[in-house]
Simulated scan of single mutants.
Amino acid sequence: MTTRAASNAAPVARLPFPFMILRWLRLRLLARWYDRHLQRLDLAEIDDHLLRDLGLTPEDVRRECAKSFWQT
């Protein structure tokens, strides 16, 4: 009598192709939101001298930093 160790193992489930794309899109969206959050944190740290060089006012910065991470 021969025994098969591999026969008791469950087969690896693969997601259908559309689900893989949806997973990738969700991860990409989360990465974009996190990057936007970090950019707004960095923008809040810039001093007035550099803001003038960029053509921004402190009010522009306050308005941008008040937005939620999902807002553009």
Score class of each variant (00 low, 15 high):
Met1Ser: 15
Met1Asp: 14
Met1Gln: 14
Met1Trp: 09
Thr2Arg: 14
Thr2Lys: 14
Arg4Leu: 08
Arg4Met: 10
Arg4Thr: 15
Ala5Pro: 10
Ala5Thr: 15
Ala6Ser: 14
Ala6Arg: 13
Ala6Pro: 02
Ser7Glu: 15
Ala9Val: 14
Ala9Glu: 15
Ala9Phe: 09
Ala10Asn: 05
Pro11Ile: 04
Val12Gln: 08
Val12Cys: 04
Ala13Gln: 08
Arg14Ser: 02
Leu15Pro: 03
Pro16Asp: 03
Pro16Met: 00
Pro16Gly: 00
Phe17Thr: 04
Pro18Phe: 07
Pro18Ala: 04
Ile21Phe: 00
Ile21Asp: 00
Leu22Thr: 09
Arg23Gly: 07
Trp24Glu: 10
Leu25Asp: 01
Arg26Ile: 02
Arg26Trp: 01
Leu27Gly: 14
Leu27Lys: 14
Leu30Cys: 06
Arg32Met: 00
Arg32Ala: 02
Trp33Asp: 13
Trp33Phe: 12
Tyr34Asn: 11
Arg36Thr: 13
His37Ile: 02
His37Ala: 10
Leu38Lys: 15
Gln39Glu: 14
Arg40Asn: 11
Arg40Cys: 07
Asp42Cys: 07
Leu43Pro: 12
Leu43Asp: 11
Ala44Thr: 11
Asp47Val: 09
Asp47Gln: 13
Asp47Arg: 13
Asp47Thr: 12
Asp48Tyr: 01
His49Lys: 11
Leu50Glu: 10
Arg52Ala: 03
Gly55Arg: 02
Gly55Met: 02
Leu56Val: 01
Pro58Met: 04
Pro58Asn: 05
Glu59Met: 03
Glu59Val: 07
Asp60Phe: 04
Asp60Ile: 07
Asp60Asn: 15
Asp60Cys: 09
Val61Pro: 09
Arg62Glu: 06
Arg63Ala: 11
Arg63Asp: 09
Glu64Ile: 06
Glu64Val: 03
Ala66Phe: 00
Ala66Met: 07
Lys67His: 10
Lys67Arg: 15
Gln71Lys: 12
Thr72Phe: 02
Thr72Gly: 07
Thr72Asn: 05
